[in-house]
Structures are given as C-alpha cells and as structure tokens.
Design a protein around this nucleic acid. Structure first.
Length: 860
RNA sequence: GGGCGCGUAGCUCAGUUGGUUAGAGCGCCUGCUUCACACGCAGGAGGUCCGGGGUUCGAGUCCCUGCGCGCCCACCA
C-alpha cells in the first residue's frame, strides 16, 4: 500500500463527505427503536457566505451528533431553514443598486421574484459551501423559509396566537429604520454611547414675560411638542400647573402638565413632551390625552406638520431649528451630554421612534411558560450563567412587534375589508368579510419578522402542524447548540412558541458557545471586513485541522480568538497521525500480512499493558468531556494520547519488536487494536482522516467508522501497576536523556549509568533492559537499595568520571531543600495534622522521604 | 442605571467541586537528516497566576475591595 509522507486532506475529505451522504448515514430513521438523539443545526444566514462562526457551531454540533450516533443513538441532524428578512432584502437591494436599480423601480412583485432568484442561486451556494466544509446534514429535511409547509405552520401559529388573545394590532411607537423603511423589534436595535449635546430652550409662557427652560437632545422634535411637563411636587413650578406656553417656531399653545416623569433633579426640571417621537412622551401623552403630532416621516424627513421645516432631513431640520432659536434668543445654552443612540443592527442607520400601526404579540403569558420550563429544568441551559441571563430577559419581557414593512417574507394572514374596515385573520384567504360580507378584501401588506418563522423551526421542520412520525419521534430535540448572540432572538422565541404550539419544549438542552473573534478580539463582521472564509482555510489546512483548531480552543463560556497560527499545529497533528499509520502500514508490509484489525491478544509486555490502561483513561475522559460540552477537553485528551503516549512512547517501544517479519503476532494484535480504538475516539473531532485510516486498516464492505461503536471506559482495562512501572521507566529514561543532552553525547554512543534506587525502579529497568537500550541507547548498572527515590550516576568512562553537570545539581538541590523545609513545616504543624485529610498528610510524608533521599544521593 | 465575563509563561489560552513541584500550543535556546513523520525527535529557558485584604491547616481556584479591559440588557429628557 502506498502511503505518502504528507497527509493531503483535499484528497480524502470531499470523497468521504459525499460517501457518508450517499450511504445515508445522516438520514435518521423515524421507525428505529434506538434511543433518539436529535440535534438542531442552525443554518448559515442568507447573506452569502459561511463564516468562522458557522464553522465552529457546525463542528460542535457535529461532534455531539457523531458521538451520540457512535454511542448507539438514532441520530438526527436537523437542518436549519434558510432565514429570510431584512438581511436578505438588503443584500438583494445592494446587488440591484450595482445595476442602478432600486426596488421601487421593480415594484413589489418583481422585487420578490428577484429575491427568489437570488435565493436559489446563493441559497444553493451556501448548501454547497457547507458540504465542502464537511457539514453533515440530512438536507432532505431542509426547508426554505417561504416553502409551502413552513408557510402553513406560520399561518397556523399566527391564527393560534390570535385565538388565544395573544395578538393585537395598534398604533404605537416602534423602532423604525428609515433606511430599511420598516419597523424592527427591540432586539434588532443596537445602542451606541455617544457624546451628544443637550440644548436648553426657552419656551415663553402665554400672557406673561416668563420663560420655562426645557432641555432636549433632539431639538427638531420640539416642532411636534404638545405639552411641557413638570414634576407635580416640584415647588418651583407649582404656580404653573394648568397654564400654557407658546411653542417657539410653531406658535402653538401647549399646556404645562404635572407628571412624575419630569425629574426635578435633571436640568431645569422641565421636560418637553413629544408623544409622536419619544417612547416616554408617548406614554405621558396617553396619560394626559395629548395629541400626537408626527413631524418626522418614514424616510426621516420632516412632515408638513413641521411647518416651514417640512421636507428637510431630520438632521438638517435640527440645525435650522437650533439656528432659528438662537437668533430669536430662545437658546438658553448647550452642554455636552453623554447619551445612547439607537442604530439599526443591519444597516447602522439611526433608529427613529415612529408612530405607526403594527402587529404585536403579547409576550407575558408565553414568557412565563418558557421561564417555568427553564426554572423547572425541563430545558437545561449551559453554561449556567446563560440560564440566568435568559430567565432575566424572559421575566422582563416586552411585547414583540412582529410586523415588518418589507416585501419579502411571510405575508401576515390578515385581510382588510375595503368597505367596513374589519380585519379578518384566517388560515386561508377568506372570500368575504367576516363582518359585512363584502368581498372587497385585501391582504395585509406587512410581512412577519424573520424570527417569527425561525421560532417555529424545531417543529415546523418535522412536519408540524400535521402530526407526523418525525415529529413524534424527534420532538423535542435533544440538544440545541447556539451562540449567545441569538439567545433571545431565537432560543427564547423557539422555547415560547414550541411550548405554546407544539406542546412541549423545543429542546431538552441548550449549550451556548462563544463567538469567534478576530486577532484583535473584535467581533467578526462583514462590514468590518475582518471575516475569515472557512472555505479558504479548509482548502489550505483541511477540515479536520480547522475543526481541531476550533475544538481545542472552545472552552465553555469563552469566545475564541481566531488567529491563523493555530492551524499549522493542527495540521501537524493530522500529519502525525497519518505518519503513525504510515509506520504501521510499512511494517505490516514488511511483516508480510494484509492490513486488518485482528482480534486483540492479552499481552504481558509493559508497553501493551500501559497503553491499554492509558487508552481506557482517555476513553473515560473523552466520554465525560463530550457529555459535559467540554469539547476542548475531549480534543486535547486525544491529542495528548495519540501524540505523547501513542507516538512518543508506545510506537517507539514497539519499534524494536518489528525488526523481523514476525507475522501477525501479539505485538500487532495490540498495536492495531489500540490504534483502531483511538481512531474511533478521535472520529467525532476529526471525522475525515479517521475514516480514511480506518478504511485502510479495515477493508470491509461498506463498513464505516462513522457508525462504529464509541469506546467506553472499562474498569477491567485499568492497570495501575503497569502505569506505575511505565512512569518509573519514563522517569529514569528522562533523567538519562537529560544527562546525554547536557553532556552532548551523541545517540550513537551507548551510555552506561549507575542506577541506585528502590526495587520498583530497578526491577522495572531490569525487566525492560532490551527495550530501553534500543530506545535510548543506554544501559544501567543496577543497585537496589531501600531509598524512596532513585539516583543516577555516570560511571567512569574513558574520559574520566564526573557524572552530572554541577549547575543542574545545584539547582535541583536548592529546589529540594525548599521542598523539604516546606514539607517539614507542614508536618510540624499540629493544625495541619489534625485538620488535613489523611491521604494528604501521607502524601507529604512520602514526598519528604523522597526529597531527602534524593538530596542525600545528590550530595554524595 | 442594572447584569455578566475576563486579567495565569513573549503570544493565544487550559486549569470540573480549594490539596502536594501551575499546564498546552505557538515562539525562543541547544543538540539531532535515528530506516513513520523536520508538519519531526530529544533536551532546555521562561510564571510574585493584575494589586490589596480576608476565610482556611492549605487559595490560581472561595469572599471583599481596588485597578485595567470586554460584552449584554435598559424608554430618563
């Protein structure tokens, strides 16, 4: 068999990815009686390409899924649907802008067609990309956002909410993005702290020479003021209650009201009220029945209500308003003011609180149920602090504005009567108005928030609202792995909607991972241009290496800082395994038999006993780690086992056994079995290389490591004696290597040491003389004594004696003296003796004896 | 204004319930073309675990506090 010196992932990865799909390994069987493990794979969002975050998330999910499948579960990789919404539209709009087109040039229908075309082209592109980085997904269950089944689920939920009294429509202040020309929810707004300005403006009292000075950060909104407020108990203004001021620039007479929202401590204690353009003022306006005058429109331009400022951009209007006030002597002053502005998460445009008619979902009842499910542990959220964060959000929930003034998305299933104005909400398009019977009906123009349909994902993808075998088998899903940036947007919504409509939690466990950041620890984002394309990276280093690099840094609760220099070492690790197998294959050929995984044989050889015990420990650790989402630990464990234990010691010790073509003997039976088991343990983390090697080792028909059993801890394989003996051998050899290295003795020259020490050391060396001679080219003259520690001396050579370098000795002596005095101090301390557990005390006693013995021999 | 997280070797980070001489990868130094691998092997240097208090026989780990970063949530003009 030809095995190349360097592992080339590109040769194998696409092949296995395709093969697994062809073999149907990712297709879960709803009819199976095996325990179910279903895991949700969030889709990459639609805006074009995969990014490193997708890669991380997919890797974690894939590790969990492969692990459970190997553990005997009926495993479903539940693919995500393709998101729709503002992001999609923005990308298409951007594309169109390059051709000098705007969506208005096309009109709604044509524009939607454009988006569909785009979706087909790039949506498919994303699937292809995911396949290329080894995404293991049952795409047959995949679903586009606007497909038939999902639309049905969306209508069902919308109508269901309505029937439960959880839906309402009305005119409120919503977050409005003037660039996207749509309402957005609170969660889609980003806050940015800026140094703003506080303008103090003097409002003249009617029938008096007095002025009231108000403070505002948005002077242009004064054009829409319908009152000014003072605190009811503010002694300075008691006499003004019920009086009237004349709004500068507009000449409108507006009342002075008493309302607690005015903070006497802030500014002058007087606040202007603009019910149409500020959430607080909107509420105050409701309390005092104030008119709402809209002076800024959906494009952020001033309305005719703004008088001579009409048509101006909001910021231009601000300038002119301030200038005019100043010239009129009504500007009492300005002051810098730290404040937060709201921006559209998608396009960065400053959000305008806008009076508009929207659809809302009443969240409190839904959130209460979700919170209860989390509190009662019906959903286990890990890491723990995210559980509290989620609960905190659920407890303080606001109603959800679900309507969007976009052209792409799920149309709201509500029909307006052109005659009586009645709104009919229905699963299917009604023929006539439910109130007046008119057939003059038009469907609501708004579409639903992307997250509305996304919130139905875990059950809509399984066939809900129809009762299907899939739904029955795989819902609730077992585990959801997602980044914290969509904890509220998605996780919370899925939980609420799942509980309400699918009758159970959408997933039993949620694991929240960190996000991938760039080398400067900034969030990766396309607009910033600091994204890394997983395709480039996987082509360069291989998917396995990329996965390993992500996994080894994926400690729970922390973000991953992505630097490309992590890749070469993962790549080196893949190559290391590759070459370990190369060693095996070359020797198999030399030994004269075919590659195979033979029956294991019991062996008394120290390296066999030791490696089995180590492997067993690794299996234990990997199983635990994956179950506890400690993927980095699983990856690191296998890395350490394969590189340090298997390659550095086990193979090195075995080498000498393969000198002559001895056939398929005990050595082979052990090493091949150990290697095969290690491949299985590594498979979830590095699926491709492990499959390739496994197939080469085990040329069976159609078998795959991907469905082989995951090795479990087996108490019978624990061999502490062998581990102890091996540890002693390693200690002795390392000590000898140090001396060889420091004395610059070439490997070719056999070194002979005097080894004086207790029986365990001397007998370990005695039993393995031949092995260690071959390994390090060292020999030992053994002297057994009753000291607790061994000591190494260099017998006289042709060059004279002088065994150990003195600098090293002095340093060690210093360290030993420190240790000894520490140990003695502890052992002389009555408190320590009486309170510390016995095994700690014993341990220190033993150590002390070892230190003293070692010190003694060094001094000699 | 609330809440959360971080600060450990030059760099990027591990370090489950407090326990003995704090680890890894990269980088650095020395020596090796040893017949699996130079994407390698062997050896080495490098840390007052951010500062200060406290609890404890014992603290990188728990508590308080200070400093420095970062994030999330929030309708105070």
């Amino acid at each position: 068999m030809q095995i190349e010196k360097v592992y080339e992932p590109q040769r194998f990865e696409p092949r296995w990815a395709q093969w697994w799909v062809d073999k149907g390994f990712f297709t879960a069987d709803a009819a199976s009686t095996k325990p179910v493990f279903s895991i949700a794979i969030p889709p990459p969002n639609v805006t074009g390409n995969l990014h490193m975050g997708h890669m991380l998330e997919h890797t974690l999910i894939d590790v969990a899924a492969r692990y459970h499948r190997m553990c005997g579960y009926n495993t479903l990789w539940l693919p995500g649907m393709d998101h729709a919404g503002i992001a999609t539209q923005m990308v298409v709009e951007r594309e169109m802008a390059k051709q000098g087109l705007s969506k208005y040039d096309l009109g709604r229908e044509k524009f939607v067609e454009r988006v569909w075309e785009w979706k087909e082209k790039y949506g498919g592109n994303i699937l292809r990309q995911m396949r290329e980085v080894g995404a293991s997904v049952d795409w047959t269950r995949s679903r586009f956002t606007l497909d038939e089944g999902l639309s049905k689920a969306v209508r069902e939920v919308f109508c269901g909410l309505n029937e439960r009294g959880l839906l309402y429509r009305g005119e409120y202040l919503v977050n409005w993005c003037p660039r996207c020309e749509t309402a957005v929810s609170d969660l889609e707004v980003e806050h940015e702290d800026i140094q703003g300005t506080l303008w103090h403006i003097r409002y003249p009292l009617k029938d008096s020479g007095e002025f009231l000075t108000v403070a505002t950060t948005r002077p242009e909104t004064m054009l829409g003021d319908t009152a000014v407020a003072v605190h009811p108990k503010d002694a300075r203004y008691l006499h003004l209650h019920g009086r009237t001021v004349v709004l500068p620039l507009m000449g409108r007479e507006i009342p002075i009201i008493a309302d607690e929202m005015a903070d006497p401590e802030f500014g002058t204690g007087v606040v202007k009220i603009t019910p149409a353009h500020d959430p607080n003022d909107f509420e105050a306006g409701k309390r005092h029945d104030l008119p709402r005058i809209k002076v800024i429109d959906e494009h952020a331009l001033m309305t005719p209500e703004a008088g001579r400022f009409a048509g101006l951009d909001r910021y231009e209007a601000r300038k002119q308003v301030v200038a005019e006030l100043e010239s009129m002597g009504l500007l009492a002053g300005t002051a810098p003011h730290a404040m937060a502005i709201s921006k559209c998460e998608r396009c960065g445009t400053v959000i305008e609180p806008m009076l508009s008619t929207q659809w809302f979902v009443r969240m409190k009842p839904l959130a209460d149920r979700a919170a209860a499910a989390v509190r009662e542990g019906r959903i286990d959220v890990q890491p723990e602090n995210w559980r509290r964060t989620l609960l905190h959000w659920l407890d303080g929930i606001h109603d959800w504005c679900v309507s969007r003034q976009l052209w792409w998305g799920h149309r709201i299933p509500a029909w307006h009567c052109g005659d009586c104005g009645e709104i009919t909400i229905s699963r299917t398009a009604p023929e006539t108005c439910s109130k007046c019977g008119s057939s003059n009906l038009a469907q609501d123009n708004d579409v639903l928030d992307t997250w509305f349909s996304s919130g139905l994902w875990p059950f809509s993808t399984l066939g809900w609202p129809d009762g299907t075998k899939d739904l029955e088998t795989f819902y609730p899903t077992s585990l959801m792995i997602m980044g914290y940036e969509i904890l509220f947007l998605w996780c919370a919504r899925m939980t609420m909607l799942g509980l309400e409509f699918a009758g159970d939690v959408p997933f039993r466990k949620v694991y929240i991972h960190g996000i991938v950041r760039d080398a400067q620890k900034r969030k990766m984002s396309k607009t910033r241009g600091n994204t890394v394309d997983p395709l480039d990276i996987t082509i360069k280093y291989g998917t396995d290496a990329v996965r390993m690099a992500l996994l080894t840094s994926a400690a729970p609760g922390s973000d991953i800082v992505w630097t490309e220099d992590k890749l070469p070492s993962s790549q080196a690790f893949a190559n290391k395994i590759w070459n370990a197998s190369r060693f095996l294959f070359l020797n198999i050929e030399r030994a004269g038999f075919e590659p195979q995984i033979p029956e294991p044989a019991k062996s008394e050889a120290i390296e066999d006993r030791w490696i089995w015990s180590r492997l067993n420990k690794a299996a234990d650790s990997v199983n635990r780690a994956i179950q506890q989402y400690r993927y980095h630990e699983a990856a690191q464990t296998m890395w350490h086992f394969l590189w340090n234990d298997f390659c550095d010691w086990y193979i090195e010790l075995k080498k000498r056994r393969f000198q002559d073509g001895s056939g398929l003997d005990e050595n082979w039976r052990n090493i091949l079995n150990v290697f095969e088991r290690a491949l299985r343990l590594l498979h979830p983390s590095m699926p491709f290389i492990t499959e390739e090697l496994w197939q080469r080792l085990s040329p069976g028909e159609g078998a795959s490591i991907t469905v082989a059993a995951f090795p479990q801890y087996d108490a019978n394989l624990d061999d502490p004696e062998a581990e102890d003996e091996m540890r002693r051998l390693q200690e002795v050899l390392i000590a000898a290597r140090q001396i060889r290295s420091e004395e610059n003795v070439p490997r070719k020259i056999t070194m002979t040491f005097g080894l004086a020490g207790p029986a365990p050391f001397t007998s370990a060396v005695q039993r393995n003389r031949e092995a260690i001679l071959r390994l390090d080219n060292v020999e030992f003259d053994l002297v057994e004594n009753s000291e607790p520690a061994f000591s190494l001396t260099r017998p006289a050579t042709e060059n004279g004696s002088a065994p150990v370098p003195s600098a090293r000795m002095e340093k060690e002596i210093e360290q030993l003296e420190k240790n000894i005095s520490n140990s003695k101090r502890q052992l002389g301390d009555d408190k320590f003796l009486s309170r510390a557990p016995a095994h700690i005390v014993d341990n220190i006693k033993t150590k002390l004896a070892e230190y003293e013995s070692r010190l003694e021999s060094l001094r000699r």
